[in-house]
Design a protein around this nucleic acid. Structure first.
Lengths: 205, 205
DNA sequence: TTTAGTTAACTAACCAGTTAGTTTAGTCAG
DNA sequence: CTGACTAAACTAACTGGTTAGTTAACTAAA
């Protein structure tokens, strides 16, 4: 029988999330992740084999969480417009629990998936597929006008990711006393995006 | 009189743009930038003092270009709705010329402006201010409904930046034969965002 | 001669990954 | 029950390659 782990890999993943979100794959330091997780660096290699392996494990876990959430919304029997509302609010809620998500998402997009293997890419792809499918169904039902589902996916989720990733830099602006760039409640922005998408997808112009 | 530079700092900036966009500040290697620019590494330190100095110079140049473009649109006498159309198309055009822009922008947002000094932050802030001002004017003129200008800025530009930054990763998806994620013409997406924003900002629901 | 521009070679620090060895929990023969 | 045995969990110290930044010598134009 294997001796139960005293150090859960979850603690390493949590520390890795902070480090990768703040500095990116190339800027992240394995020693720093180990120190933050209060774990010997070799334990990290014992559990995840390499820096890349750790990174991929983190992304798979994160993206599958997001995809599951959106698939559940798509499978529900709410009207299409309400599903879109829930997707937008759901992403904001997901990010509330997983603060590192937007930064890592934006970095990985910027990097062109350079550190991802086939399996991780497939997990990531499930996210736009779930949302795109939900939009397509709304079009088929006649609830939405005829838009490209991938376009709709991007126009509803990119602003949320951007807004929440930009929290720290808005704080920097605040320190410079720049008007009109003060932080505002997340819920207000969620509502704004819900209204925007309702108007963007409505069949009657 | 100073001997004219045989190696223009512009070539170093161009090489730096590629490297920083592809790998981020932490992942970028100064030697690689120097090699790509066909310049001795010491020349890079001669002109830009440090890796950080080079990075900041690149961002200042890029952001001031974007801000100037949007300020010109804001100052024109077109109707507000058309100004928004032009801002969206203008960003896409800017990125067409400066392919590295979306990746660097997304990374810097993710990093919370960690490598930026006061001057560079002010240059960056000019971008949302120009666009936000244009929206506010539209509201004052009664052409737009009452929305938060910063929210409008984010919802119109984040999807464009995201879409264009995601080009490489969409290519990866394509290699895995994932349906509905194939690359589509940029102009189609620009049109989609113009229509989305026209609907989102229209005063009559 | 002065000064901006340029270079190859150097260095001190850093960093991903390894290794060799220790501890601990569970197994099982007697 | 018990003590030898096993394998997973864990650690401190190390290694070899890399990296940002420096230096000192050189070139050529004014």
């Amino acid at each position: 029988m294997p001796r139960p782990a005293r150090v859960s890999p979850d603690r390493i993943l949590a520390a890795a999330a902070v480090e990768f979100a703040a500095r990116g794959f190339g800027g992240a330091r394995v020693d720093r992740i180990a120190r933050r997780a209060r774990v010997n660096k070799a334990m990290l290699y014992y559990h995840f084999k390499s820096k890349q392996g750790l990174y991929r494990a983190l992304l798979r876990r994160t993206f599958s969480l997001a995809a599951a959430r959106f698939q559940a919304i798509a499978a529900s029997d709410a009207p299409p417009a309400e599903k879109v509302d829930r997707v937008i609010a759901g992403l904001a809620a997901l990010i509330h629990d997983q603060e590192f998500f937007p930064a890592i998402m934006m970095r990985e997009v910027a990097e062109g998936g350079a550190h991802l293997d086939r399996e991780t890419l497939l997990t990531l792809a499930a996210v736009p597929r779930a949302v795109g499918g939900l939009v397509q169904q709304g079009i088929a039902e006649g609830a939405f006008r005829d838009v490209n589902p991938l376009f709709a996916y991007l126009s509803m989720l990119a602003p949320i990711v951007f807004y929440l990733a930009a929290g720290p830099i808005r704080k920097e602006f605040g320190a410079l006393h720049l008007e009109h760039l003060e932080p505002l409640p997340v819920d207000d922005f969620v509502q704004h995006m819900q209204e925007t998408m309702r108007r963007a997808l409505a069949r009657t112009s």
